[in-house]
Design a protein around this nucleic acid. Structure first.
Lengths: 141, 141
DNA sequence: AGATACTTGACTATTTTAGTCAGGTTTATA
DNA sequence: TATAAACCTGACTAAAATAGTCAAGTATCT
């Protein structure tokens, strides 16, 4: 059970963006250099973040990306959701007639995995980008 | 982020074992049939569980497996640990000189992933096999 | 005009997963 | 003591997911 790079990078990049998100847009190139993430990969990630309206792009020279909402309103859930980082604990197919389908037949551990999924998602729902930035600034003193 | 089959199967098999763990050992063949898990794969899993002293094997005809501890004392952590299902959120190498190594340099989100890992592991530490069996019996009435 | 920076989509090597397969060894019981 | 049930081990592999790279644009500020 592990977190993929895509999810991790998305959060790292957004924390970076939030920290430098004063007046000017932040270019992916800068984020790439500071966070050590490939520029091409960042572009893929930000394309998704833009579609989900988490960031806005500013084109042209001196362009880059800006947060589209307040850091407080951007939760980890939103970020992971945008880049398709999903928490999957159950494999049971909804339409399977034999075995566990989550309705008529439940495998012995079905409820457990549901609980686990909720447990993890709760964590993601609570944490906002602002929390992360603050946490980071405190540790930098 | 997802749970692998190995971890899921291990828990399913142990719940099954715990339920039928009265006097006689339970054969993998029976578990395989009841839970729909390949026998060969189960053998791999139980080999690991035995090494970590979570189950005991009984050889010969009428043989099979028995729990090696009380169901209450077997936590999900123990099970996942035995089958190498680990929760990995951080990728930062301990010995890397450049970038995040978890000590001298911390990436902006290092603490976050640590927190997440703890959050998930807490869930695993609390849940015991007994909890799962009970939960299952209640829902069967 | 031209540099900068975003945008898109296709492609691919590597790794992980989820098993299968083959060939054992052990031991209860008839 | 033969034999069948059941455990035990390790090597192998197909398929899927991951983590990117690469190429070829398009938009816009100066």
């Amino acid at each position: 059970m592990k977190l993929t790079s895509k999810g991790r990078y998305a959060v790292m990049a957004l924390v970076d963006l939030a920290r430098f998100n004063n007046i000017n847009p932040v270019s992916l190139r800068d984020i790439s250099l500071r966070q050590g993430i490939s520029l091409d990969y960042l572009e893929q990630i930000f394309s998704k973040l833009r579609k989900k309206e988490i960031v806005q792009s500013v084109r042209g020279t001196q362009g880059g990306y800006v947060l589209n909402k307040k850091a407080k309103e951007i939760k980890l859930t939103n970020i992971f959701d945008a880049v398709d980082e999903k928490v999957k604990t159950v494999q049971c197919k909804k339409d399977s007639k034999k075995g566990c389908n989550g309705k008529t037949t439940k495998c012995v551990t079905h409820n457990l995995w549901d609980e686990l999924e909720n447990h993890i998602n709760n964590f993601f729902k609570e944490k906002s980008l602002e929390d992360l930035v603050k946490d980071n600034q405190e540790r930098r003193i």
